[in-house]
Amino acid sequence: MTAQRFTNGDRVKVAEITGRRHVRTPGYIQGRHGVIERFCGYFPNPEERSIGLTGLPKIALYRVRFSGADLFKELSSAVADSIDVEVFEHWLREVEDDI
């Protein structure tokens, strides 16, 4: 268990990772930008547990808030205004503020 890297309000980008069998990061958020809504705690790694390993040490889990209009640009009139998704820390990358 390592100290959490992100705090509320941090801007993050979800990694695009292929070649793993069981992941809990749906395709529609991979490669997309969001904002940390909250830190949820530490949990065993489901990718490792799915293949019979312990999933330890536990890893940090966050709720990341995405803009529906950002995720689904071509549909932006009908989509949800915001979508909160739980994402494990090893899927998250820092984003520099581009002001």
């Binding site: 992941v23 749906p26 395709g27 529609y28 490669g31 995720l71 689904f72």
Partner: peptide, 14 residues
């Protein structure tokens, strides 16, 4: 929409 899918269960937008 999101063309990328992690498996048959990843159905958002499909």
């Amino acid at each position: 929409m999101s063309a990328k899918r992690i498996g048959p269960h990843d159905v958002a937008g499909s």
